[in-house]
Write a protein that binds this DNA or RNA. Structure first.
Lengths: 140, 140
DNA sequence: TATTGTTATACTCTATAACTATA
DNA sequence: TATAGTTATAGAGTATAACAATA
């Protein structure tokens, strides 16, 4: 591919990629908002594999442990999880409350229905997209 | 698509989308860094259609005009643009210096070579990806 | 000594509001 | 009155470093 053409292709396709990621994030934010849960807290709730120590959430979130502390506090303040010491008493176990379970389920249902990858593409198209994105990500 | 399956598909594919967008951003940041230009400043430099008033850059950047002021100051401080009053004296025209032109060109060349959409996909694959992302974005 | 979680602090990206100078 | 750019300030998301309790 010649350079000027490659540049405009790179721009256009990269922009589409960023827009699609933004749309995905926006829809999630909308769903979280409707559920009355701050976005990052909703994200944590969706990732939580109850019961689990906070460190596991940091791993899934791919963030520093210091970021989990306020998120867990928020989850607790909303009555979505309890924070109890584990058998290794350095850890704290996050465990969904009944309310937490129902909100987690409700979020899951909305995502399954409204996520743009679900709402706008057929099974075949999803499969093709997965292949292409995987390839894109493979070389680094 | 059944709900539990749709949920895990949505998660997986959304995650791939976010990762691909992140990779695209990371490569750009790497290229900007190698050029010795702060990322957002490099982004502005790439978008600048010299000479143009600052408001045009705000439009291309899709950001508020207040964000452009420090970006333009940075571009000027690095000797990449000059800021001169336009014929409408409320405006300031950003114009690339010779150094600005050469850095802009160098960035363009690197992007054309290393952007993941260029480096990892064939022409056909790019075309398919463009189709899928466009479809994904169309319904909102 | 290494690990879990906490706290304080700071950095990046970006917006809002109020302002100045033109138009 | 409306527009271009500036300034001050604030908020979201996240990290680093130092620390306490426990292993």
């Amino acid at each position: 591919m010649s350079t000027p053409n490659a540049l405009s292709t790179a721009r256009h396709l990269s922009q589409l990629l960023l827009s699609a990621a933004d749309l995905s994030r926006d829809i999630f934010a909308e769903i979280a908002d409707e559920a009355g849960v701050p976005v990052q807290t909703a994200r944590a709730l969706c990732l939580l594999d109850s019961p689990a120590p906070m460190s596991q959430l940091a791993t899934k979130f791919a963030c520093d442990k210091s970021y989990i502390t306020p998120l867990a506090a928020q989850l607790e303040a909303l009555g979505l999880v309890t924070r109890t010491p584990g058998s290794d008493r350095r850890t704290k176990l996050l465990e969904l409350t009944p309310h937490g379970i129902s909100v987690q389920t409700a979020l899951g249902n909305q995502i399954a229905r409204r996520s743009p990858v679900i709402a706008s593409l057929s099974d075949d198209e999803r499969e093709t997209l997965e292949l292409l994105l995987t390839k894109l990500l493979r070389n680094n």
